[in-house]
């Protein structure tokens, strides 16, 4: 449970400590890549809750999404079309969908647990 959170903190810590200089013009691509990464994280959480987790899917999804998003933003800049908005839109929508599913599942789990405990209490009482 704590290992993923530790990983996140470690990533932030190493990122701050290394201070890799990124030129300002690439900031936008990086931002889109971050959005893709967040989408993968929430997708992974959803699949855990739904018991359909697959490590390979998560990892490949993470890398291809982040790369594709950055590439799309780059291509959009070359073409003069704000293609990165497509990535922002797609990932944004998916983020909210995944969050909604996670929330519903958690509420459902909690309600089920409570019902069970109430039944248990009734049986015992």
């Amino acid at each position: 449970m704590w290992l993923p959170i530790l990983g996140l903190l470690l990533g932030i810590g190493i990122g701050s400590a290394l201070a890799i200089p990124i030129p300002g013009i690439y900031a936008k691509y990086l931002s889109v890549a971050v959005l893709a990464a967040l989408d993968s994280v929430f997708g992974g959480l959803k699949s855990i809750i739904e018991d359909k987790f697959d490590g390979a899917v998560l990892l490949t999804g993470f890398f291809t999404n982040a790369l594709l998003a950055a590439l799309l933003a780059f291509l959009g800049d070359r073409l003069g079309v704000d293609l990165y908005l497509a990535a922002v839109f797609a990932f944004g929508v998916r983020l909210f969908q995944n969050l909604a599913i996670i929330r519903r599942e958690m509420i459902a789990n909690w309600l089920q647990k409570r019902r069970l405990s109430v039944q248990e209490a009734k049986k015992n009482g």
Partner: peptide, 8 residues
């Protein structure tokens, strides 16, 4: 994934 997300 979370590690890389944090880094990014």
């Amino acid at each position: 994934v979370l590690f890389l997300s944090g880094l990014l």
